[in-house]
């Protein structure tokens, strides 16, 4: 998820060499950078962008799954899905708070999401057509997110790293519940198994795209690695994900939709076929099947909630005034 946060990031800085070296030395010594520490503007901007996009992804990510809460096949599944979607909301909030420590306001980030200026993970622009998609999302999408997020627990920026530690602790339940759904379907009737395979077919490639462009195409990767905002390259993480996931699919009798996917003894990993980068860029830039719906849903939620926010603030102001008046009367 996070690697897409770097698309179009400006990492250029104007600070002098001595300043940048001093900062780099702190990062190299694995010192955490905290909000009030001096930092290059490029570092700050890259983080605001990345953490903001990460937060937006969590929030928008509630939508495809929320789509199935009322239609979950059992109470057990429904309770788990509700808890998972609630977690995603929580993750968004931890991340917004981390971004705010860098001097951007929540209102500004919300505005950028709603206006379409800020990006979020391309994966959430695909529709959830069947119940099996909920399994596939937990297993693959959360699985890919965990691959990305575990190294981020060691990110050089303290608040981001702390938020990631919390998120990772909670995320592993998500992947397990997803895999369990897939496993149950794969062991079910022929139709159920087909449904599981169909979901895997549709979510496999978009999940691989979550790791972002190839290292050779990724313009900002080097600087982010140097600043330890990022700890592994996109391709390294993608390979790790494929290596972990292919055997999991085989275990439940499903196969990834890639005829070129096979074990490579020499590299001790799976080879896999080419990714459709045209599709990736189309979806990132707003041309995915669900981009319009997702933003429309977020806008509606924001607009429908406006009176609640206003009422809460008015109520708080009134209570404060009343308490002050009572105090004066008592004196």
């Amino acid at each position: 998820m996070y690697s897409q946060g770097l698309i179009g990031a400006q990492t250029a800085t104007d600070e002098d060499e001595a300043f940048l070296e001093r900062f780099q030395a702190r990062v190299d010594a694995d010192e955490k950078i905290e909000p009030t520490d001096e930092m290059p503007e490029g570092y700050r901007r890259t983080l605001i962008r990345q953490i903001g996009q990460h937060a937006h992804s969590e929030i928008v990510g509630m939508l495809p799954e929320g789509n199935w809460i009322t239609r979950a096949p059992s109470l057990r599944r429904k309770a788990a899905l509700l808890a998972k979607v609630q977690d995603e909301g929580g993750h968004g909030l931890y991340l917004y708070s981390a971004a705010e420590t860098l001097g951007v306001s929540r209102e500004q980030m919300t505005e950028e999401l709603l206006s379409g200026k800020a990006k979020y993970s391309s994966i959430f622009n695909y529709p959830t057509l069947t119940w099996a998609d909920i399994g596939a999302i937990g297993w693959l999408v959360d699985g890919a997110a965990i691959m990305n997020q575990i190294p981020l627990c060691r990110c050089s920026y303290g608040p981001y790293s702390r938020a990631m530690i919390r998120v990772c602790k909670e995320e592993s339940f998500h992947q397990r519940q997803g895999y369990e759904i897939m496993m149950t379907l794969a062991n079910g009737s022929a139709e159920q198994k087909e449904m599981a395979q169909d979901a895997l077919n549709r979510w496999w490639w978009p999940s691989l795209m979550m790791f972002g462009p190839h290292d050779s195409e990724s313009q900002h990767g080097d600087q982010s690695m140097k600043w330890k905002i990022k700890r592994f390259s996109n391709d390294e993480l993608r390979q790790k994900f494929v290596n972990a996931t292919v055997p999991q699919a085989e275990f439940i009798g499903l196969s990834v939709p890639d005829p070129e996917c096979k074990w490579n003894e020499e590299k001790q990993g799976y080879d896999f076929g080419p990714i459709d980068w045209d599709e990736f860029w189309r979806v990132v830039k707003g041309g995915g099947p669900m981009n319009k719906d997702r933003i429309a849903a977020r806008r509606k939620a924001h607009e429908d909630g406006e009176w609640v926010r206003q009422a809460a603030m008015a109520h708080a102001a009134k209570r404060k005034a009343r308490a002050a008046a009572t105090k004066i009367a008592a004196e």
Binding site: A83, Q86, D87, G90, L93, Y94, S97, E100, R106, A163, R166, E170, R309, A312, M313, H315, A316, R319
Partner: peptide
Amino acid sequence: GSLHAADAEMALQAARDVYTR
């Protein structure tokens, strides 16, 4: 961590939801 809320009561409620699940 931190959160936004209109008043103390809502902040407590939100803290319970966000940080003690």
